[in-house]
Computed example of a mutant assay.
Amino acid sequence: MTRLTRQTPNRTLRTLQREVDGLFDQFFGRTDGGDRDTSAVWSPSTDLTETDDDYRLRLDVPGMSADDISINLQNRTLTVSGERTSERTEEGEDAVRVERAFGTFHRTFTLPNAVDADNIEATYDGGVLTIHVPKTKESTRRQIEIQ
């Protein structure tokens, strides 16, 4: 009798991802059953978009205030850092599962030469930090007509 088995390649990838996540959790001392170490390093998810006039970075940093975040520019290196503190459980309350990351984060981005560093702006709304990095006039794209 021939036996048919359903192949699911994604299942193998998911299993591998869980194993790798488990190794990282063991290395950094994190477990699902309790508080994560407040000194743990985490990295906010970031989107980078480009238009003809500017670059925009959007970092997911929910649960933080603008005062918790620092943005620095030195030479062409833009550094975003901060710290998200964990919410303590109340007396008589034990954490059953903690998945949100807490602690410090540090993201560094190397900017191209042709940005207007004096006019970089940042806004924070709804847990998303948006950094607007304008390009210099010389670096903006322009259409060249063929003669």
Score class of each variant (00 low, 15 high):
residue 1 M to S: 14
residue 2 T to N: 14
residue 2 T to K: 15
residue 3 R to C: 02
residue 4 L to Q: 13
residue 6 R to F: 13
residue 7 Q to T: 13
residue 7 Q to W: 08
residue 8 T to G: 09
residue 10 N to V: 14
residue 12 T to H: 10
residue 15 T to C: 10
residue 16 L to F: 12
residue 17 Q to P: 08
residue 20 V to T: 10
residue 20 V to E: 04
residue 21 D to S: 11
residue 23 L to T: 06
residue 27 F to G: 05
residue 27 F to P: 01
residue 28 F to V: 11
residue 29 G to H: 05
residue 30 R to T: 10
residue 31 T to D: 13
residue 32 D to E: 12
residue 34 G to Q: 12
residue 41 V to H: 10
residue 42 W to V: 01
residue 43 S to I: 04
residue 43 S to L: 03
residue 44 P to C: 00
residue 45 S to R: 04
residue 46 T to H: 00
residue 46 T to V: 07
residue 47 D to F: 01
residue 52 D to G: 03
residue 57 L to C: 01
residue 58 R to P: 02
residue 61 V to C: 00
residue 62 P to W: 07
residue 62 P to G: 06
residue 63 G to R: 09
residue 65 S to G: 15
residue 73 L to V: 08
residue 76 R to L: 12
residue 77 T to V: 14
residue 81 S to I: 00
residue 82 G to Q: 04
residue 82 G to T: 05
residue 83 E to L: 09
residue 87 E to H: 05
residue 88 R to Y: 01
residue 89 T to A: 11
residue 91 E to A: 06
residue 91 E to N: 03
residue 91 E to H: 07
residue 92 G to K: 08
residue 93 E to K: 10
residue 96 V to W: 03
residue 97 R to I: 07
residue 99 E to F: 02
residue 101 A to H: 11
residue 103 G to T: 05
residue 105 F to C: 09
residue 106 H to M: 06
residue 106 H to G: 00
residue 107 R to E: 03
residue 110 T to K: 01
residue 110 T to A: 06
residue 113 N to T: 14
residue 114 A to E: 15
residue 117 A to V: 08
residue 118 D to P: 03
residue 119 N to T: 02
residue 122 A to V: 02
residue 123 T to I: 10
residue 127 G to D: 07
residue 130 T to W: 04
residue 134 P to M: 05
residue 136 T to K: 03
residue 138 E to D: 15
residue 139 S to I: 04
residue 140 T to M: 15
residue 141 R to S: 15
residue 141 R to P: 08
residue 142 R to Q: 15
residue 143 Q to E: 11
residue 145 E to Q: 10
residue 145 E to M: 04
